[in-house]
């Protein structure tokens, strides 16, 4: 036989041998996986965001099939998708209330005092490590769009006032922005809770208002005007406890002199101009 053909012949032989071994192993050592896991996984959004508490979509699908979790715990899927999964698995959807990310700060360029100019590269955390980025308020939004970059669902866009505007339709309440914010300003709250404190300054009186025009000065009027027990003051900030009292009414915000407590019909900062794509 020609030497040239020996090598390919040996390789083919080895290939066929191991192929046969694998074919036999595949037949006799097969592990049966519930086909529903694959099908459920296909119906999940596949973002692996972790909002459900599982490491990713496939582990969540496994738990769904075994009945340990409910489809509604996936905050990212649309209601239709959750319904579809529930129908397919013949379980209760266990739908939860829709959560959205809210920013605990209303102090943009036009409201918060700037005490210095930040000239490093754009990024909230980068600015936060350099003397707090030059903003007078050491607790407020830095406005350099770390959350916009972190959002998986394109739901956050900075507006002209330098504040992130969350699109409540697109927001799927994954914790991306919560983790990205160096000042921990984002929190996930039910969309139905309309009374919201848009400030994070633990100072009272003039100490707070000299830093920002929309700072909470801890006057306590909202506590007096709301239903008894609904709002309490903690560290110079109102804390709204929906389980302690109610109902929440817009009257609570009427006498707020600095408009740091707001009644949100839909999105935050709706009166501010959105920045159009491409205008930098």
């Amino acid at each position: 036989m020609n030497n040239l053909l020996t090598a390919p012949a040996i390789m083919t032989g080895i290939g066929l041998f191991f192929g046969a071994v694998l074919a036999i192993a595949g037949r006799f050592l097969k592990v049966d996986e519930d086909p529903r896991i694959e099908a459920t996984n296909a119906m999940l959004p596949g973002t692996n965001c972790g909002a459900c508490g599982q490491p990713g979509c496939l582990p969540f699908a496994e738990k769904l099939v075994s009945g340990e979790v409910e489809p509604g715990q996936c905050t990212v899927s649309t209601d239709d998708d959750i319904e579809r999964i529930a129908e397919y698995l013949e379980v209760d959807a266990g739908r939860q209330e829709k959560l959205v990310a809210r920013l605990r700060c209303g102090g943009g360029h036009l409201q918060a005092n700037q005490i210095a100019e930040y000239r490093g590269f754009e990024g909230c955390r980068a600015a936060a490590v350099v003397s707090g980025g030059g903003k007078g308020c050491a607790w407020g939004c830095l406005g350099l769009a770390d959350c916009e970059a972190a959002c998986t669902f394109d739901a956050i866009h900075m507006n002209t006032n330098g504040l992130p505007q969350v699109d409540t339709e697109k927001c799927r309440a994954c914790p991306d922005c919560v983790a990205a914010c160096p000042r921990d300003l984002f929190e996930l709250v039910p969309l139905s809770q309309k009374l919201y404190v848009q400030c994070n300054i633990p100072l009272a009186g003039a100490a707070a208002t000299q830093l920002c025009a929309v700072a909470c000065d801890a006057c306590g009027k909202c506590v007096a005007d709301a239903a008894p027990g609904l709002i309490r003051m903690e560290d110079n900030l109102p804390v709204i406890d929906y389980s302690a009292g109610g109902p929440a009414r817009p009257e609570a915000v009427f006498r707020c002199a600095t408009r740091s407590i707001v009644w949100l019909e839909r999105e935050q900062f709706q009166d501010q101009e959105a920045r159009h794509a491409g205008t930098g």
């Binding site: 490093g120 590269f121 990024g123 955390r125 980068a126 936060a128 490590v129 350099v130 983790a179 160096p182």
Partner: peptide, 16 residues
């Protein structure tokens, strides 16, 4: 700004 990038990362890691 290499150092600032590194500081940012360290801050994020410590923060988390």
């Amino acid at each position: 700004p290499i150092v600032q990038l590194i500081r940012t990362a360290k801050d994020d890691l410590v923060h988390r």
